[in-house]
Write a protein that binds this DNA or RNA. Sequence first.
RNA 1: GGGGUGUUAGUUAAGCUGGUUAUAACGCCGGCCUGUCACGCCGGAGGCCACGGGUUCGAGUCCCGUACACCCCGCCA
Length: 611
Amino acid sequence: MAEFIRDLKRTHSCGELTAKDVGKEVILFGWVHNRRDHGGAVFIDLRDRAGLTQVVFEAEAGREMHDLAQELRYEFCIGVRGKVVSRGGNVNPRLVTGEIEVHAAQLAIFNRSETPPFLIEDKIDTAEDKRLHYRYLDLRRAPLQQTLMKRSEMNAVTRQTLNRLGFLELETPFLVKYTPGGARNFLVPARLSPGKFYALAESPQLFKQLFMVAGFERYFQIVKCFRDEDLRLDRQPEFTQIDLEMSFVTQDDVFAAVEELVTALWSEVLGVEIAKPFPRMRYEQSMREYGNDKPDLRFGMQHVDLTSLIAEFKGAGVPMWQSFATAAPGQIVKALRVPASANFSRTETDKLEEIAKGMGARGLARAKIGETGEWTQSPLAKSIAKEARDAINAATGAQAGDILLFQFGKEAMVHTVLANLRLHLGKRLGLIPEYGTPDPKRADSWKFLWVVDPPLFEYNEELKHWVAAHHAFTRPHDESIQYLETDPGKVLCYRYDLVLNGFEIGGGSIRLHDPAVQERVFAAMGISPKEAEQKFGFLLQALRFGAPPHGGIALGMDRLAFLLTGAESLRDVIPFPKTQKGTDLMTDAPGDADPEQLRELHIAVTYKPQT
RNA sequence: GGGGUGUUAGUUAAGCUGGUUAUAACGCCGGCCUGUCACGCCGGAGGCCACGGGUUCGAGUCCCGUACACCCCGCCA
């Protein structure tokens, strides 16, 4: 008899047979998704990556085959030869292939399966650590398969689009020299240079600039990056970027290229046409109204800055606000208005305070607005001056029944607390979903935004000097350069972040290619020319050999896929992700090193696990 | 480094103020069944209640600690 695979090749997938195929002899390979054994007839849903097809094994089609069919269980890997038959009145409308079924004439069990630890169903109801332990089974689920197939498509569209725009796909090394600053690097011992280490590249940043110096003009790469930092819902220790760099461009040119790419992804993978150009917002406005540089513009509830108002009223009579009677740098007062329609109970407001405290707040002062604008249920009510209260009501637009939430103190803390409270309230009030996009086919479900013109430096309290907010090679605005020596905090630059629905999906800059300005930038950070040479020598040297003006961006491919597919977690768009502690539950990485390996590397482990 | 939530059959969960033999559904095993597609029916097996201490006559339940997973702050910028 003809043997499957050797003689009998697969003719169709399990997702494509319809009424027009009735009468055909077909050969299908796949996994037993479900079985319904009626004694005389065994029904099997056969699954492959394309879908499900019902296969029927009837007693009269052959005793031997029917007996074998009764042995089938979940996840057996099988081959079937049979005839496509119309289901007549028994159509299953929930299956693409529901009009037909395959009446089997020949069955082979390629491999039996142990009872799987969880069922391979679309609906995920298994704890994530168990899914990760048996990731190869989890990846059999249709939603994950579809997500990864979309990701594959995204890769293809990225390559097509960027090729069309004249970008060259060039590779850069993973094993690189450690450069200080930025993310913590993973270290790799260099056996051939005893006692020395490579770093795993946290990004191809320096190398892509060298491609520009070399004259490639337009570079891109879909590339893994490695950062040894703590994980979050949207952060993995190894992740993928669409990295690109362009010569002879302004910021607007970079935006145009990226918008071309992103709209192509949404159009071709999702079938949604996103309007170009994307809106832009200045960094200053983003911080003021949303408390971070990645505002979710799907809903309002902006922060209201009351710092100058409180200073104007000399603290407004409120004891807690006396330190704000005069505006002090780095200290702010802000409010968030919860509309009356939220109908928040006391308990719920208390819960908000707990959330705030969890993020470093000392408390969460609040005020419920009464019919005549008076404040109730508020620790501020007794002491607040009436004029100040009315001014705050006016500034926040507070109406009767609304609740005002106040946060004051260090700017960074106030921003963190209120930015997260705003998102929490947005979800709680149903203005945005917990995750994903309820209506992904609608263009206005997608709020793309460029956040532009941020400061070049930020002041580091610990180091007591200015440090680069992005990296030291970002080009300042020409009109800002005059402040490099006198007021570094005022220097804005050509750095930009692309934000989608509250997630940063990309960031980049126009690079600084003028050695004279570069020197002044280093000086502002207290870095001497000699020191700069030590840290960034090869790049600085390269820039002195006729470097073209250039700039670029890196887009987070995992986050793009995460948002585009509406996944619940970044882990759902990565085939083999790590846990929050950076471990792999399937392979049990990281593991111990063999003493012999360590000897070869001249490494001694001094860590002693606590007992 | 810090805060929060969780951990009970293979899986998902229930188990109240501590009280006899820890429940259910799905899955698993055996039997019956030719039109099911969440197939159905009959029967059965399956548990160190995460781990270690403590309180108590008695702990799945209360307390402390540890581990692991997830979410957040710091970190990543």
